[in-house]
Amino acid sequence: MSDLFEPNIVAFVCNWCTYTGADLAGTSRLTMAPNVRIIRLPCTGRIDTLFILKAFERGADGVIVSGCHPADCHYTAGNYHARRRFAVFRELMEFAGIDPQRVTFSWVSASEGGKWAEVVNNATEQVRRLGPFQKYPSPAAHAGEIACKS
């Protein structure tokens, strides 16, 4: 083992496209970085942006969100709602103290095992470059900081 930083990455994926795509990657024996742990949800529409913040709070260094391609949603439109939600969320990430590069949004279909491996490897490399995620300062400390300034 080298001293390479091994980031801890959580992937929130939909059951129908990306989860199945990741299954395909397995069936095809595509080797990829072991840093990504998948949490299965029915649809990207189910993914609350708070899940992402919670993951960081609990020690994740990076997050992947992935679902069906636009127009391919198993539930017709869930991924469109997700897309809007994440478009807004992306704007707020820095405000929340998270480097947007730590979060990867992608569309991986059930037939894109290779693409899933790429997404996993790229996200791992990217987060590895960024280093461990420094936890948020506690709210109290933050409040103190504001108080000092004013």
Partner: peptide, 10 residues
Amino acid sequence: CQGCGTCQAT
């Protein structure tokens, strides 16, 4: 309901 959960996240 088909169980996509978009309502819950919303």
